[in-house]
Amino acid sequence: MASKTAKTAQDILMADFQTLVRDTEKLLEHTATLAGDQADEMRSQIRDSLVRARETLKLTEDSMRQRGEAAVVAAEEYVQTNPWQSIGIAAGVGFLIGLLATRR
């Protein structure tokens, strides 16, 4: 569920940033020819896109933080219920890192 929410938030974020880029490109193209109300409307659209992108980025950040906290809790629970297996896994990973480090 959290993964699906994070993926959706990431998709929304990407779409918002793409919209922001398109709006910015339009603004740059028409800067020389736009004046007055048209320029204000274009700037308003860009501001709205920025606000949406920031909100989506905040949602994504919150989702990632929740997933990280859930992973930490799950790891702590696993280590507490299986301390010897955890020590064995840590020793094995350390051994592999040691092997890789000595090859260089």
Results as ranks from 00 to 15, higher is better:
S3T: 07
K4Q: 13
T5W: 14
T5N: 09
T5E: 15
T8E: 11
T8S: 12
A9Q: 06
A9W: 06
Q10E: 08
D11G: 05
I12L: 13
L13A: 03
M14A: 12
T19A: 04
T19Y: 01
L20H: 03
V21W: 02
R22H: 04
R22I: 07
T24M: 02
E25M: 08
E25H: 07
K26W: 05
L27T: 01
L27G: 03
L27R: 07
L27K: 02
L28C: 06
L28D: 03
H30R: 07
H30G: 12
A32F: 04
T33L: 04
L34Y: 15
L34H: 14
A35C: 10
G36P: 02
D37C: 03
Q38A: 13
Q38Y: 05
A39Y: 05
A39H: 06
D40H: 14
D40E: 11
D40N: 12
E41I: 10
M42H: 05
R43D: 00
S44T: 01
Q45G: 03
R47N: 04
D48H: 10
L50A: 10
L50E: 10
V51N: 01
V51W: 01
R52H: 03
R52C: 01
A53F: 08
A53C: 05
R54S: 13
E55P: 00
T56E: 04
T60N: 13
E61I: 09
S63C: 14
M64Y: 14
M64A: 13
R67A: 13
R67Y: 04
R67H: 09
G68R: 06
G68A: 02
E69H: 15
E69N: 14
A70S: 11
V72K: 12
V72N: 05
V73H: 10
A75E: 09
E77M: 14
V79W: 02
T81W: 03
T81R: 13
N82D: 05
P83F: 00
W84Q: 15
Q85H: 12
I87P: 06
I87C: 08
G88Y: 07
G88R: 11
I89F: 10
G92E: 02
G92S: 05
F95S: 08
G98N: 06
L99M: 15
L99W: 05
L99P: 01
L100P: 01
A101H: 08
A101Y: 09
R103H: 09
R103S: 13
R104Y: 14
